[in-house]
Amino acid sequence: MLTISKEFRFSASHVLGNLPEGHQCGRMHGHNYLVVIELSAAPEDLDSAGFVRDFGELSVVKKWLDDNFDHRHLNDVMGGMNPTAENISKWIYENWKEEIPELSAVCVSETPSTWARYHPSPSPA
């Protein structure tokens, strides 16, 4: 398999639920998020130029993130889902998998030292 990745950034606030009383993430706070999408294809599935997918075609993801996430309160954006980095990565994946079938994983970082990565489990044989 060959894998490419592209990163995007946005800033947003959130409040995480179901935490112990006094937990810092239970208060409204914000992050400068980094999102990395990964696309994979077998060598025989590359396009005629030899790409998994042309990076330029991924500008629609940037526009979608800007329109839906940037400078927003993620609790309002994600329809009641607790906006953890884990849930954000899965939500982004699920929103783009149909349009970008090569999408193999989505990584979300809230801080320079923390990451969550969503990738679907392989189908059972």
Rank of each mutant, 00 (worst) to 15 (best):
S40K: 05
E57T: 07
W64F: 12
E7C: 07
L19Q: 11
C107R: 13
S11W: 00
P124N: 06
L39G: 02
F55M: 08
H119K: 13
S5W: 09
S11T: 10
Y33E: 04
G30K: 10
N68C: 11
A105K: 09
G56Q: 04
R9A: 06
A125H: 09
S59D: 08
E98H: 10
R27V: 07
G22C: 08
E7I: 03
H31P: 05
A49H: 13
S104P: 00
R9S: 14
P43H: 10
A105D: 01
E102A: 09
T111N: 09
G17N: 15
D76T: 04
K62D: 13
N87G: 06
N95L: 01
N68R: 15
H14I: 00
M78H: 05
L39R: 03
L19W: 12
L58M: 15
G56W: 01
Y33W: 15
S48N: 07
L16C: 08
L39M: 14
S5G: 11
W64Q: 04
C25Y: 13
D76Y: 06
I92M: 04
H31E: 06
R53I: 13
T3M: 04
D54N: 15
I88C: 03
L103Q: 08
S5M: 05
S59Y: 03
S121T: 09
L58A: 06
Q24T: 06
P112K: 11
T84D: 06
A125S: 10
L58D: 03
L46M: 12
G56E: 11
D45A: 13
K90N: 02
M28R: 07
S11F: 03
S113H: 12
H29E: 05
S89F: 13
R53L: 08
L65I: 06
A105Q: 07
